[in-house]
Nucleic acid binder design. Sequence first.
RNA 1: GGCCCCAUGGUCAAGCGGUCAAGACACCGCCCUUUCACGGCGGUAACCCGGGUUCGAUUCCCGGUGGGGUCACCA
Length: 553
Amino acid sequence: MDYQLLANRLFPQQSYSKEDLDARFPLRNLPNGAKVTRLGPSPTGFIHLGNLYGAFVDERLAHQSDGIFYLRIEDTDEKRLVEGAVDMIIDSLSFFGISFDEGATKTGDQGNYGPYSQSLRKDLYHFYVKQLVTQGLAYPCFLTEDEISQIRQDQETTKANPGIYGKYALHRELTMDQIENNLMKGLSYTIRLKSGGNHDLPQDLIRYIKVEDGIRGNLSMPENNQDVVILKANGMPTYHFAHVVDDYLMRTTHVVRGEEWLSSLPIHVELFEKLGFDLPVYCHTAQLMKLDENGNKRKLSKRKDPELSLGYYQEQGYHPLAIREYLLTLLNSNFEEWRILNPQASCDDFPFTTEKMSASGALFDINKLNDVSKDCLVRIPANELVDFLIEWAALYNQNAWNVLNDHRQILEAILDLGRNDAKPRKDFISASQIFDFIRYFFDRYFSIEEPLPTEVSREDAAEILNRYAITYNHADDQSAWFEKIRTITSDLGYAVRPKDFKNSPDQYKGHVGHVSTVIRLALVGRSQSPDLWEIQQILGEAKSIERIKKAAF
RNA sequence: GGCCCCAUGGUCAAGCGGUCAAGACACCGCCCUUUCACGGCGGUAACCCGGGUUCGAUUCCCGGUGGGGUCACCA
């Protein structure tokens, strides 16, 4: 068999030489130890927390080492393309703080190693496929779908391993005449790798590949024996082939991907070898998991878990930093410890390592996210929080936006309530939750939502408010203000000190807390809120008195 | 089914041959307190099983079990 002849017949146009490509994709000029990583989403229009989880690893590895992090669009499957998906992916990632140094952008490619969409790199893949064919390491396969499923059925009945390999690789040794004949008939074909692996051997003779994974350490698996498709009938490469060619040409040093790729690692190792490329460092991350209906862990799924889509967290108004820090706590077990020691530092200063990454899948935990978010938001200055809130409302809650925008000048004070003490309040989790938390400030969203405490009768409530209104002086400082509440408390037969009521509940109707609750209900509509005096200061004298006078139980 | 990965409290996890087996979240008390939040103190709760190796295994090896992943002209 004249492989050169076959190669020229299959790929008549000789587009490149090795030298051309080496010149076009030179070794990167980077500092020692710089890592080059990439994110390779396929534009299916959906991206979830798990994707972001992996993206952070890429991003940290590259940016921590003064390397390059680039975006490559893996669009080799035109059946799954979704309109606008690329822009959506870029927008979501950017919202969550993932920025690329090169690659695809919304306005076209940026960088010298492009094109950064695989669909535009066909000629490059063809060059390397042709090289393999020339060397007798790949061949055209004319097997139809039906024939392949027939093979699979045979394998099922004989309990053989599925796939095209060994004696099942029917077109492996076609003669040039047979191939020519098929070509003349216009039969469609794929190009398959002629795998050098063999599993039909006694156990101890099967060769194993050994790879040192950046996260998992030494990995050992049986070598590949499958004649995998590397070029589809439509001339597009499969993931396997595109991955190997691109990561070589783009000079990727670290390939970060989910553990679901572990089982195809032998294929990639063989491809790297046959193409004469050095292997990058693989980092197979554990997957983010979720508890399914039966209480079992399950990999995040696009279809089943819409609440885990990035869009969901944007809608809820989680702050990108909170998501980032939460993911970091899952990614590196020592992050939380570091955060406690460095409360004010940017999380970008955290020394991230793949060695600290867990090899087992973590369950997504909304409780933990919320807790991280509270700590995260308390570090964000109120003026920035105002912008964040308003931007969120503009996109996801128009009614809220109208109100927030109208009260912009008091928003900062509202968001800063109780946040400047030594022990700042941590009330905020997400934009939607913040809005719900502060909405009583706005008449449109204010109403008395909870009943009186059982200790206070309706008559007493009316009298409390009556006296409160009469003695109200907006200029009172906090202690003068509270002194007046104490007076009302004792005048009406309630205990000024909660302890007194606790110790002798028969002597009092209730205590100062119950009296305050009445005032709180009148002012904010709820039995719980930050400091009332401060709220009144923000509300203003007129509105405070108005609410006190209007309140009815 | 083959192959691969994983296995410490409810969750995330330290640990890397000798520990009373950290810590965080959640939960439960108590304290602080005009409510809530914050904060402080305390508490419930874990090394999947069986063999080895060893003076000694949560830790190393083997075998199970369990969970996950993967076996496409999808990535």
